[in-house]
């Protein structure tokens, strides 16, 4: 049974999306990504190290024919910077998608939503498929969609914090507020966090540090793969309502008097 996520006509088989930062080596990156079962990976745009004659390239290890490449604008603190990075990324000729980040503060890496809105509007008009990394505010999510976002990527918690889904109620309201896919981005620490996001009804979860920073990244990638599937199934299966008191699982009928 296929359960594709479709964004602007692009089909995603996996609902676990994986970042490629912070791994010990390109080889480990490739193995973790393979183990996660994902078909979409994020990348950053940076200067080529012109002094390094070795020059191994990430794309030598991650085949763009096998994985959809989602470039980000990580590290950009202004609209202008984010636009510049997004345009450079698109020029690579691999993808029109951009995981748009306009960061507002170094310590929290929380998004600057005013800048994010402006950049989303400009890039969407330029034909980009814009996936903005945003905070967990439903109103901002709605504004981003109005500005042309193809999906919204609210944070579960600060990037790399591993604090999990800190405000599941807001994520739930975002899901009810916007019609585009909602992809939790940032904050996941372990398998249960992925499951919680998926059980809420999120369309996908993006994870980087939880895998790359684990003691065994390959095993963690497998754990998150299963958690994502489990959470998605649980959401689709429809959970029972929470109740304060017990309701017996075994029948009263036939009991000895």
């Amino acid at each position: 049974m296929e359960d594709l996520l479709i964004i602007k006509g692009i089909e995603f088989k996996s609902r676990l999306w994986v970042g490629t930062g912070k791994y010990k080596s390109f080889e480990e990156t490739a193995r973790a990504i393979e183990a996660s079962g994902t078909d979409v990976v994020t990348v950053a745009v940076r200067r080529v190290n012109i002094l390094d004659r070795n020059k191994e390239n990430l794309l030598d290890y991650i085949d763009p024919k096998k994985y959809k490449i989602l470039p980000n604008t990580a590290g950009c603190f202004t609209v202008e910077e984010a636009l510049r990075y997004a345009r450079l990324a698109r020029e690579a000729g691999i993808s029109d998608m951009v995981k748009l980040e306009v960061i507002g503060d170094e310590k929290t890496l929380f998004p600057d939503v005013c800048g994010l809105l402006k950049a989303t509007e400009i890039l969407a008009k330029e034909g980009f498929i814009v996936l903005p990394y945003t905070n967990d505010d439903p109103i901002t999510a709605k504004r981003l969609v109005d500005a042309g976002a193809a999906a919204v990527m609210p944070l579960g918690a600060p990037i790399g914090s591993g604090l999990g889904i800190r405000n599941p109620y807001n994520i739930k309201i975002i899901l009810e507020t916007v019609k585009v896919p909602v992809i939790v981005d940032a904050g996941v620490g372990t398998a249960s966090d992925v499951a919680i996001a998926m059980e809420l009804g999120c369309d996908a979860v993006l994870v980087n540090t939880a895998i790359a920073g684990a003691q065994d990244p390959i095993m963690m990638a497998q754990a998150l793969k299963h958690a994502c599937i489990a959470g998605r199934f649980a959401y689709k299966a429809g959970r029972i309502p929470k109740k304060l008191y017990a309701s017996a699982s075994s029948p009263l009928e036939g009991m000895l008097i």
Partner: peptide
């Protein structure tokens, strides 16, 4: 001149 490529990122 700026020469850029893709690197690991989240």
């Amino acid at each position: 001149i700026e020469i850029v490529n893709f690197v690991g990122g989240g």
